[in-house]
């Protein structure tokens, strides 16, 4: 499924009407290629979360255009009818906290998405196991989430985000609860997976440790994005 990237042009999000109207996003342009990991940074209230919710098809942008690969999914209105299926099949999520489902074991936490997509349980578990192996947590497949360390939980959460091979992953502060070593490990995994699965990954972060690892960063201020390309940027 991966290998399409995401492109956003002139995205706006307005709350309220008339005199009370306020724009949380005024002009957002982004273009993330398949296999690329970009950072999205900005101060509190700059519109990061609103942008993430728009990209995640959780709230409706007011204007703009959004493309996943060649498919226009938003053009001043959603072009896909089933946003639930869109989120399930084409957008992966990695959260600040892993938010694993506490009553499912590690394998089923990851296999749940392909199951929801209609895959047979055995096939879904096989697919999930592949990713757990790639992320080196296959030995914890039968464990319940509460038995995992923070780093292991985050790797399982990444596996869940990637399991349906979505063209784009939205990662909301994925390293916030982790120490430097584990944070860098998560960044390394995201970069490896982006390359391996040709997935575009947008990482919203405040974490100064990992900011230098992005080759491209989008700054967002007052609802407007500014791209910054740093030659020296590379993940370690």
């Amino acid at each position: 499924m991966g290998g399409k990237g995401i492109k956003i042009e002139g995205m706006k999000k307005r709350y309220g009407e008339g005199d009370t109207a306020a724009y949380a996003l005024k002009d957002v342009d982004m273009d993330v290629a398949p296999g690329e990991v970009v950072g999205l940074i900005g101060p509190s209230g700059s519109g990061k979360s609103t942008l993430l919710k728009c990209l995640g098809a959780v709230i409706d942008p007011t204007e703009g255009r959004m493309m996943l690969g060649d498919e226009v999914i938003f053009d001043n209105g959603w072009k896909v009818k089933d946003l639930c299926a869109l989120r399930r099949d084409k957008i992966g999520f990695v959260f600040q906290a892993p938010y694993l489902i506490p009553f499912l074991n590690v394998l089923d936490n990851v296999a749940l998405l392909p199951m929801l997509a209609g895959l047979h349980n055995d096939e879904a578990r096989e697919k999930a196991m592949e990713l757990l192996t790639a992320l080196d947590v296959q030995h914890r497949a039968d464990a319940m989430p509460s038995r995992l360390s923070g780093g292991e939980q985050q790797r399982v959460a990444i596996a869940r985000g990637l399991v349906n091979r979505p063209p784009v992953i939205l990662a909301d502060e994925p390293t916030a609860p982790l120490d430097s070593k584990r944070a860098m490990a998560v960044v390394r995994i995201l970069n490896e997976m982006a390359l391996k699965l040709q997935t575009a990954i947008i990482v919203v972060t405040h974490d100064e440790k990992i900011i230098p690892t992005f080759k491209r960063i989008y700054h967002i201020r007052d609802g407007v994005t500014h791209e910054e390309v740093g030659e020296g940027r590379s993940y370690k």
């Binding site: 995640g56 959780v58 639930c84 299926a85 869109l86 989120r87 399930r88 099949d89 999520f93 959260f95 938010y99 489902i101 506490p102 749940l112 998405l113 929801l116 997509a117 869940r160």
Partner: peptide, 11 residues
């Protein structure tokens, strides 16, 4: 958990 389930596409 329900919010997460809905976000990841659970009907």
């Amino acid at each position: 958990e329900i919010a997460v389930l809905k976000l990841i596409g659970t009907r």
